[in-house]
């Protein structure tokens, strides 16, 4: 029954996006939602083109799956609601497969696992980032992320500030309103190479907490889209086996996708 329903759902999804040409088995076109504001994973460059590790990687998977892929840029805050209301079929936006999100959406297999870090002013000498050590400090992160959830869960004695995008949090660290920001290490590194060069440094890495951070980054799909999920999982497995996942990761992140 459930496979039949999933099959029907996949058919309907295909029919909805390619009216008239939908065949019974094949998904021929998928829409992909991403944020476009999280370099080096996904970013809109000055020419308004999407670029980054996830863009290259997903385009690779699309070629593998022989489907036509269309990218849709969507603000982070609405990225899951827009998936649920069928603005696109899959989210590829550095999203960690957390238990909390898994209640609402399905995740594919993990394709990268990002280290998490705290960044602060260069003048900070201590590498102690325990909640006790940061009591009374002002900490920032992008809102609706695992990082904000992590701060909310453990850093109750600090002032917490959520930002609509990571770039605004970076800006406020630069301005000196924040003492620390928490984010994925690569996103922070690209900030430190660029605008944050003179002001800030990585203070310490944050240990992953399975209940909050999840096992790693996966692609999110609507529940019940099992045919699409199986197709993407197969492509992910192939890309892991033939080394092309790591090829894209080396290009953009400077290291292997899964440590």
């Amino acid at each position: 029954m459930t496979t039949k329903r999933a099959f029907l759902a996949a058919m309907l999804a295909a029919a909805a996006f390619v009216p008239g040409t939908a065949s019974a088995q094949a998904i021929t076109e998928i829409k992909i939602g991403t944020e476009g504001a999280y370099p080096p994973y996904n970013n809109l460059n000055a020419k308004k083109e999407l670029e980054g590790f996830e863009i290259d990687y997903m385009n690779d998977l699309c070629a593998r799956m022989k489907v036509k892929c269309t990218w849709v840029v969507q603000d982070w805050d609405g990225i899951i609601p827009a998936l649920l209301s069928k603005k696109y079929d899959v989210i590829v936006a550095g999203m960690n497969a957390t238990p909390e999100r898994a209640k609402r959406v399905d995740f594919t297999d993990v394709y990268t696992s990002t280290p998490i870090a705290m960044v602060g002013a260069k003048s900070i000498t201590s590498t102690n980032i325990s909640p006790d050590a940061l009591k009374g400090k002002t900490l920032g992160a992008q809102g609706s992320t695992i990082h904000m959830n992590y701060l909310e869960a453990y850093y109750k004695g600090s002032t917490l500030r959520p930002y609509p995008t990571q770039e605004e949090a970076n800006l406020d660290l630069l301005n000196g309103r924040l003492d620390y920001i928490v984010a994925d290490l690569e996103a922070l590194e690209s900030f430190l190479k660029d605008k944050g060069k003179d002001c800030c440094k990585i203070i310490a890495e944050v240990k992953r907490d399975a209940a909050i951070h999840g096992p790693g980054v996966g692609m999110a799909l609507r529940k019940g889209e099992d045919a699409l999920k199986a197709m993407i999982n197969k492509a992910i497995a192939e890309s892991k086996a033939d080394g092309s996942l790591d090829k894209h990761a080396m290009k953009w992140l400077g290291k292997k996708a899964i440590q």
Partner: peptide
Amino acid sequence: RLAFARSF
């Protein structure tokens, strides 16, 4: 927004 981001 916080409540929505957590609960959808």
